[in-house]
Design a binder for these strands. Structure first.
Length: 237
DNA sequence: CGCTTTTGACCAGCGC
DNA sequence: GCGCTGGTCAAAAGCG
């Protein structure tokens, strides 16, 4: 499946971001047309009719004029999505990613990337800058630059159901925020995927979820909706 | 009893 | 070198 190559180094980020701008296997979520083909470079746009509104991750080189929006759940949402993405009154999350090259590049570029993020009025923190330090822990931890992506959602619940089982391993109050950041790890053996969940300081209704790593297994099969979830997951990962 | 969550401590990186 | 900060560990507590 194409998803297996998404996070390889030196790939075109604009292509990559087209596929993983929100977590795969999210239940209750509509899927944009960009997931229906494996060759598209369109940004990926999800729509949740229940708890989520819109969530996007637009690659930096993306041509907005070429966007074709669909909702697989209800065609009536197409208009909502359009207005959301292009600055309409329902805009909830439009995150044009800066070239997150430092995650795959050299560490010494980090400060420059942060500056660039600020220039673009992006929240570099929410783009996961801090987590990519890839520190050596207890000197035995191997240095691996895990692929990461983040997205914003408007949701009452902190942890969205993405079909995988997660175990919380830490919580931290981050500077200048009133809401703690939670750290989760996939419960599957040999799966190193982690995610961080926090609420946006400026708007507590917004949840920032950052995934790091790539699952080496299928999502949990004991959920009621596992059939549909699994299919979506297989498509994406 | 086994799994998950909580939470204080610890560690490494960074800026000054 | 020191202090600050974010990320992780691990023991204790909670829960079904």
């Amino acid at each position: 499946m194409f998803s297996q190559s998404l996070f390889e180094d030196h790939q075109d980020m604009s292509t990559q971001l087209g596929f993983f701008s929100f977590p795969p296997n999210c239940n209750n979520m509509g899927i944009s047309s960009s997931t229906t083909t494996s060759s598209t470079t369109l940004p990926f746009i999800g729509y949740n009719q229940n708890t989520l509104k819109t969530l996007t991750m637009i690659p930096p080189s993306f041509d907005h004029n070429s966007l074709n929006i669909e909702s697989t759940h209800d065609p009536r949402h197409k208009e909502d999505l359009t207005t959301s993405i292009f600055g309409g009154p329902h805009l909830l999350s439009l995150q044009k990613s800066n070239p997150n090259t430092w995650a795959w590049g050299e560490v010494h570029e980090r400060s420059n990337i942060i500056k660039r993020s600020r220039e673009f009025d992006l929240d570099h923190h929410n783009l996961g800058v801090s987590s990519i330090k890839m520190k050596k822990f207890k000197s035995s931890r191997r240095k691996v630059r895990e692929p990461r992506f983040c997205f914003k959602t408007m949701s009452d619940v902190d942890v969205l159901d993405d079909g995988y089982k997660w175990r919380k391993y830490g919580q931290k109050v981050v500077k200048n925020t009133q809401h703690p950041r939670s750290y989760y790890r996939c419960t599957q053996d040999n799966c190193r995927v982690k995610k961080r969940v926090e609420r946006l300081a400026e708007d507590p209704r917004m949840v920032i979820t950052t995934y790091e790593g790539r699952h080496v297994h299928s999502p949990s099969q004991d959920e009621e909706d596992s059939q549909a979830s699994s299919q979506l997951n297989n498509l994406l990962w």
